[in-house]
Nucleic acid binder design. Structure first.
Lengths: 218, 218
DNA sequence: CAGGAAATGGGACCTTGGTCCTACAAGCGC
DNA sequence: GCGCTTGTAGGACCAAGGTCCCATTTCCTG
């Protein structure tokens, strides 16, 4: 599994590191964009195509971990591979806890880096694919009116038309109308498909069956 | 969020470390079990109640990371907090990639350790809760006959009784019979609830709607 | 061989869901 | 004010789902 059009961003303040990493990665067939500062990266990076970023830890202005946090805050979810000559355990552990793909030490073995980049790009491709699905569902949901959304919520909770009508204080006939329009707008032909679509989008998160709580206050 | 009856396992070959950790953790209200070897731990550890394990990295016979791998292989999923005086970046990164809850260096700040333990136990409690739900679903599924399971699969994919009958080469009447028994055994009263129950158990994983592939061979 | 579980299905009947057509009132924008 | 969307709802009708009754066959187990 690999990807055409995949880009590896290299962010490092040292020009010679940028050059050698770019050479290595291009030789392996990746598109490479090199950037010397975190600011530059934040301006250039896109998430529309599979990619990952190889990030130096120590940089002037904004450090690698700082950039990583910035990315999370701004919703830029791209796999981050840290690459540094000055690694210590707390920094690496913190980076991993925040979701870094890996934390490598210079000098890095070429094969290890390429392997890591490949895995990161693959995971990003998978994430993009999932996101595309969720966005489609979100777009469908956005087309629903308030009433239709209320009916949808009831339907995926397994409520009958009669019950929904009682809940909303309207006639069963009207529920059927809304329900039909929901099925149209969500582009499904069965309740099962509707429920599964909504599950992938994280709608109606609370359970249909038993909820088991193991927790108590102390 | 905290837990009564939660146990912290301490695995360290150094008796004085075991004693001081146990004292600290007991003072914070946790049940503590100290063990001097990985083997001992594998015999004692249970997963029926919220817990976590504080693990030394360097130990004779079986090291912390080795024990961690062993746990994963044998399906013993308990949050692991590594605690070591001899930490290096590759070891810590590898441990985190394999799912360790944290990787701390001795001497550890008491507050940091307690905070980490609390989070680990909470995450384990949440996992146990989820697992309990999945096990209930699995138990229900296990009660289904082969035919009933086939009908269930079709139903949650949104197939009509008529289509299911054609697929299986039986009459629509028989499908209704199986379907009714499925609803009984799964303890639900609507297709929506059935689908959501199966989703939580990871049944019928492929999509009802569009599948977007971003990947191609190279 | 007797008993039971599993799978099959027919008949009768009712409830639910879904889809036409029609209609009307409220609110919004031009 | 006209056209649009949204929400409402009745009538008619059919398809789909669900539930009783019943019966048969097959296969496994004690």
């Amino acid at each position: 599994m690999n990807t055409d059009e995949a880009t590896v961003f290299v962010v490092d303040d040292d020009a010679s590191v940028r050059r050698s990493l770019a050479r290595l990665l291009r030789a392996a067939g990746w598109n490479v964009e090199t950037l010397s500062t975190a600011r530059e990266f934040l301006q250039r990076a896109s998430v529309s195509e599979p990619a990952c970023v190889v990030l130096d830890v120590r940089m002037p202005e904004m450090s690698g971990p700082e950039l990583h946090s910035q990315m999370r805050e701004s919703g830029l979810s791209l796999p981050v591979i840290f690459l540094t000559a000055y690694g210590d355990v707390p920094t690496s552990v913190e980076a991993m806890k925040r979701g870094a793909a890996d934390f490598l030490l210079k000098p890095v073995d070429a094969a290890v880096l390429l392997q890591t980049v490949t895995r990161a790009v693959e995971s990003h491709a998978a994430e993009l694919s999932q996101r595309k699905g969720r966005q489609h569902v979100a777009a469908c949901l956005a087309r629903l009116t308030t009433r239709e959304r209320q009916v949808l919520d009831a339907v995926i909770r397994g409520r009958r038309n009669k019950q929904i009508a009682a809940d909303l204080g309207i006639s069963e006939k009207t529920v059927k109308v809304h329900r039909g329009r929901v099925m149209d707008k969500m582009e499904v032909r069965s309740v099962a498909q509707l429920v599964r679509l909504c599950e992938t989008a994280g709608i109606g998160s609370d359970s249909p069956g038993a909820r088991h709580s193991m927790l108590s206050g102390r």
